[in-house]
Design a protein around this nucleic acid. Structure first.
Lengths: 202, 202
DNA sequence: CCCTTATCTGAACAATGTACAGATCATAGA
DNA sequence: TCTATGATCTGTACATTGTTCAGATAAGGG
């Protein structure tokens, strides 16, 4: 493996990436609160203060991690979405549900990631790149809804702000389930209710 | 003022409440991350370890604070709701919007409180009392929707899971706005879109 | 080959959460 | 009224944390 980390060397060579990767591992396991820069440095085999060459402080590292997570989510969504391509009404509707489900499943599988992405750390500086990442996912949703209208399987009158409504429902239920205020099965119920309200026919 | 805090006394007399009250003040100003047990103890004029007689750790104090915040929100909602009492269709519809707006305004006014309420701290032990507090607000929403159906100003077919859908939209937009992923004005847009989708007539 | 610059170390500091032994008080029972 | 018991708080201590900064080390261009 050429990717094996070269330790016992004064210059790590890939420290910035290693910091984010290791931070990802720790957050995945234990969440944000317990994340320690020193533990990360220790794991990589580097001095506690080495990180400060790449990030001004702990929060910035978390923000950087958050950005990569938004990328991961968008990639995952597009990958799943590709499986239900097609111009048919049935395919468009399936894409709509896949968009919601992937969002939800991602959050359920990695709740600590979800929490980080929508925490204070990730709004310190809403970087241009980050909003672009979000727009990528948001645009996919917009296209999906347009497809539904075009296929004649959705009420045209309800198209106004339907993307805002959809994202809110999906994010809302997900957030409430992750934080323990709703049960897991409520997600599919909410999605059904949303489709019914938007006049998406099956 | 008999409520003036008696300092320079060995026994504080009201420490548990004082801890929560002071924690509330600090969270309100600076959020969760920077909250320090020692600062709180210092502010009250008590030893750093005094808190451990009432709370096993820092997280428990935050959880206790979170519970009182759920109470505050429910109280605030009921107070505002009382202003639009009445059996008319217009009143029922106004109550629906007030329920959403109070939730949103509460979160915008005190974003740090909102973050705490839906953070990991408040799900450590979903106490029976807390779920009861939530049910109080949730039941209010259910009643409101029933009123709308009864007044004939809402599509009966869409009544199924309408409370789940409504709460998700309101919480979702609020969460996304607080975390900087949507603009403030998107809330009213989402509420309009929700009413339109649910067939709530004006 | 040297020297500039990027990269990392090591030691230090203040602040934090938490544990624990003991001091202080409040109060019920004699 | 005295006393002993339990509740309440102090003081000290420890490990861990984020962060700073002066200096060591290596890489790469002239």
């Amino acid at each position: 493996m050429t990717t094996a980390r070269v330790r016992d060397q004064y210059h790590h060579g890939d420290l910035e990436v290693a910091l984010i990767t290791t931070a990802r591992k720790f957050v995945k396991k234990n969440g944000l609160e317990s994340l320690s820069l020193r533990q990360i440095a220790n794991e990589i085999g580097v001095s506690p203060s080495a990180a400060y060459h790449y990030f001004p402080d702990r929060n910035s590292l978390l923000a950087a991690l958050g950005f990569t997570l938004f990328e991961e989510l968008a990639d995952y969504q597009e990958r799943e979405l590709a499986k239900v391509a097609g111009a048919s009404a049935r395919a468009a509707r399936e894409r709509f549900r896949v968009l919601g489900r992937t969002y939800f499943e991602w959050a359920i599988r990695e709740p600590h990631f979800f929490n980080l992405m929508f925490s204070d750390f990730c709004l310190i500086e809403s970087s241009v790149e980050q909003t672009r990442e979000e727009n990528r996912a948001y645009q996919t949703l917009v296209n999906c809804l347009d497809d539904l209208v075009e296929a004649g399987s959705m009420d045209k009158k309800l198209r106004v702000s339907a993307e805002l409504l959809s994202w809110s429902v999906v994010h809302g239920t997900t957030s409430l389930i992750v934080s323990g205020h709703l049960d897991t099965e409520d997600f599919e119920r909410a999605l059904d209710s949303l489709e019914l309200a938007l006049g998406i026919r099956r």
